[in-house]
Amino acid sequence: MFEYCADPSQLSGLTWLSCYLTTGTHFNFYRSFVTVLMLLAVTAPVALAFGFGGAMAARSHVTPLSLLGRGYIAAVRGVPDIVYFLFFVIALDQGIEWTKHLFVCDDLSQPVWNGTEFRVCPAAKVPLATSSAIWHSAYAFALAVFTFALVFGAFAANVLYGAMQAVPKAQLETAEAYGMTPRQVFRRILVPQMWVYALPGLSNLWLILIKATPLLFLLGIQDIVYWARELGSAKTSGNNPYPHGDWRVFYFLALLVFYLAFTRVSEIVLARLTRRLSHGQATLGGEQLRKAGA
C-alpha cells in the first residue's frame, strides 16, 4: 500500500505494523465485516417475513395449514442450527437445480442422483457454468441468506405467535363489534398492536442472529471469523512477506471487541425503539410513559 512497504523484511516496529495492517489480506478482512453486516441487514427482514408467515399459518383455523406452521416452528427449533447449516445448503442447491432440471432438460431418462453424485444437464445448473464468478458468489450469498432466514424465521414465528396471542382479546372483540371483518381486525388491530409484545423476543433474536454469524463459513461465505483465522495462523518465512507466529488470539480478541460493541449499540437502539412503541400502549411500560409525560 505505502511506498516504503516494498521490502517488509527491512522494516520494524510501527512502520512494519502499518504495512502489515494494510496488506491485501487485511483489506479482505476489513471488507468481510461489510459482508457480515450486509448479510445481517438482508437476513433480518427476510427472517421476519418467514416468521410472519409461520405465525399466521400456526394461528390458522385450517388444520393442515396450522399443522404445517407448528411443524415448521417445532422442527427447526428442535435442531441445533449448526446441524442445518451442514447439510441444508447442499440440499437446497440440489433441490433448486433438480426443479430446474425437470423443466429445461430434454433428456430426463438419466437418473439425477447416481450414488452420492448429483448430475443435471448443463442448462439446469444454477448459475450456468458460463456465468461469471460474481454470479456464483451472489448465488452462494442468496443461499446463505435463505438458510439463515429459514432457521431464524422459525424463532421469529414463535415470538410473533406469542405476541399475537398476547394482544388483549377485548380489543379484538371491540373491533368486531364495530363491524370489522376478520381480515380488517387482523390488519388494523392485531398487527399494529402486537409489535410491542413481540419486541423483547425479537430484540433477543437479533442479538442471537449477530452471534450466529461465525457459522457463515459453513455456508461458503468468507466471514470475519474465516479471515481472523487465516490472518492469525502462523506464517512461515518462505513464501510470506510478513512471517509471524500464531497470532489468532489477537485477532479473536479483536472480534470479541467487535461483537461486544455491536451488541451494545444494538441494545441501545432497541431500548429506544421499545420506548417509542410503548407510547399509548395498555402496558406497564406505556403507563409509565404516560405518567412521565403528564
Partner: peptide, 12 residues
C-alpha cells in the same frame, strides 16, 4: 460494491 459481494476469492 461488486467487490464486496465477492465473498469467494476467485482467480480467473
Amino acid at each position: 460494491m461488486k467487490k464486496m459481494m465477492l465473498a469467494t476469492a476467485v482467480l480467473a
